[in-house]
Design a protein around this nucleic acid. Sequence first.
DNA 1: CTTTTCGTTGCCACG
DNA 2: ACGTGGCAACGAAAA
Length: 507
Amino acid sequence: MANKVQHSTIHWFRKGLRFHDNPSLLHALRTSRHVYPVYVVDQNWMKEHDIRYGANWWRFVIQCLEELDTRLRKYGLRLFVVRGSAEDFFKEHFRKWKVTQLTHDVDTEPFYRIRDVAVRKIASDMGVEVVTHVAHTLYDIDRTVERNGGTPPLTYRKFLKVYNEMGKPPKEKETATTEHFANCTLPPEALQDKKFDMVTLEELGMRCDFPAKFVGGETEALRRLEKSLEDKDWVLKFEKPKTSPNSLLPSTTVLSPYITVGCLSARLFYHQLDKIYSKAKNHSQPPVSLHGQLIWREFFYTAAAHTPNFNQMEGNRVCLQIPWNKNDEHLTRWRNAQTGFPWIDAAMTQLRKEGWIHHLARHAVACFLTRGDLWISWEEGMKVFEELLLDADWSLNAGNWMWLSASAFFHQYFRVYSPIVFGKKTDPKGTFIRHYLPVLKNFPKEYIYEPWKAPRNVQEKAGCIVGKDYPRPIVDHKEASQRNLDIMRDVRKDQKETASVTLGYGK
DNA sequence: CTTTTCGTTGCCACG
DNA sequence: ACGTGGCAACGAAAA
């Protein structure tokens, strides 16, 4: 090899749990004699920053880590799973392992940024060079914002304009493979150090008493990508709003969990789509196309990275200030699929048991919790999603919750999803409900979306008495949504007046 | 400045 | 089956 191969490098996996399109890993391998691949599990840090991934998410990530470890061992390396503070670990091991270089992806969430600044300081104090690359998003987000004049685009159209000016995102990098690892080794004592062996759910104090519907790992991610792109016609015609939220086989790709933890590169997905698009005469366009979905992700990442307090209402300049109610009983019932609205409860059951629900199902349950029915803050819903979703992503989660609650980005608050009618369009027989709420499975289709309306004898025949075997609806939808609509209108009127008064003072 | 148009995915009644 | 306008009417951006 022509270039000097002499660094002793820690490659820090956070997201980016992959060998394909991993520029910072490639850099580590190309410039080092020793490469220590590290993943940090720090529950205190997570608690401090209110990061609340649940057992299903951890199981998924551990599967990803196991695959990384297995593959690294084939190349003579291993994964070091660190317990506790990243700062403490680096302070100790930069010296112990004679580290001269640290490599990792650029991450934009505030909690990552704070920690990265601290780690960078430790590194510079100890003479460790830090090399980072943008690999999780399509573009370098700071440059997108620069291009937009210093602020993030806050409408999709505006974002598209910037996107069109910037040209296609960088091509994905080659996959790290045998030749990249050829010159990298680890000292035997490090290879055998049991302290850094794989973490388990038990160790994290967690339990999953249901099987994994979606298995983590890069191999599964790439297999799923390939399968998703198999039917070219489906890819070319894809329009998100036309996909079904309640088909038992997902009507979309379900690549989001893989992209979120980074065992699938968004850039790889982007360019594979691009190849298919370029060979065809016609294809669907953003925002509804598959490219459009990746651009939505980028849109929320960009807004989140440049909006202080993006995941809360208070101090968030893009978020409408709404006097939400606090109602722990209603929140708990929503969380635990006990609202008495079968379509809502079925979706929430799918979320809890599988960790993924269709985007439109998220719309339905989010609208129900916030502006539609329960008038509970979007922040509460966001927290539940973060705990239960495999694809929970800080930026997208907060952004979409603001969208659905009509707090930001989306303003047509009078368009309320009906918890009874909406699901019927794509699943009139209620197959989805019957699957996830077996207690209702024998209700005739006339009553499956509103079982409380079934006459007593029908309930008896179905073997399910509403109010006993399945809850009565916790609100009257018509009444609640109308009341909420009125409050929303008043809030907006008030805030417009306040804003103009403030403006008046400013002049 | 005002006016019009548009916005990934509402519901309902009517034809 | 599907399209349309009314509902009561949002904010951002184009015109």
